[in-house]
Nucleic acid binder design. Structure first.
Lengths: 133, 133
DNA sequence: AATAATTGTAACAATATTTGTTACATTAAT
DNA sequence: ATTAATGTAACAAATATTGTTACAATTATT
């Protein structure tokens, strides 16, 4: 089983939708194309809907569509919607016992935050429209 | 249980070592300070040793020390040593069936590679010496 | 009004990963 | 010899991800 294929599924789906923004697709169609299960698709795309990137409609002739223009959805939007940790850095939640430790944690945290901010800037500069050829 | 605390453990340990590069520490000491187990410490630090960042010595009075000057060990070195995925993007290994899919995967992969390269540049600009106050 | 097609979501199993732990062989200083 | 350390295998426990089944709610079609 693969780990964390949510981002992959989201990007590929959004990329396809960007090619034909007015065509709604069902989770079954998307799942077949992505080689997975409709429930998994609804699970992942549900997060994109909560973030305002997608619209879903229930019932007969329902399905999934982009909520706005492909040029207005960036990679940073997708990362944020999936709540992906950009880095795999988890600080210990236990309070630091020594002063050196506390100072270092703060320094590391600030460095990471700075790097992350720059990364988000870069991700924001790429729209899903640009993910297609 | 926490997920992926390896980077945290590695950085904090290296940070402390950078403050006193000549003092060798045992995995038990490090484990107590980090609130974990000596075997876990040896597991994580072993990777740093394989990458040439640390030196370990067996036997009585053995322990762990930096392999080179703190200013010469960067965050990028540490990430690389732990083989961390910078992003949680996993491409499907299955060959793409349609041309649109193939093209998009290539585009995504190239975008990710580009972002990752810039990120590594930034990580390389910060040494573990700078992680302390 | 009945039917069909779709999302939303809960529940559970299967799998993979991470961490913690015990145990023990190996190595080196005392 | 004894002691103290690493190196590593093996396994348990916790957690996360994915796949799957089931079914209620919703909406279009007939």
């Amino acid at each position: 089983m693969k780990r964390n294929s949510r981002l992959s599924l989201a990007l590929h789906t959004l990329g396809h939708m960007a090619a034909d923004p007015d065509d709604a697709q069902t989770s079954t169609e998307i799942a077949e194309h992505a080689g997975t299960n409709p429930v998994v698709v609804r699970r992942v795309l549900g997060r994109l809907r909560e973030a305002g990137l997608l619209i879903s409609e229930k019932g007969h002739a329902g399905g999934w569509k982009l909520a706005r223009a492909p040029a207005d959805i960036t990679l940073a939007d997708v990362f944020a919607a999936l709540d992906e940790q950009l880095f795999s850095y988890d600080d210990n939640t236990e309070p630091a016992h020594c002063a050196v430790e506390r100072a270092m944690r703060q320094r590391i945290s600030s460095v990471m935050t700075d790097i992350e901010r720059k990364l988000v800037d870069q991700l924001n500069s790429i729209s899903i429209d640009e993910m297609r050829n």
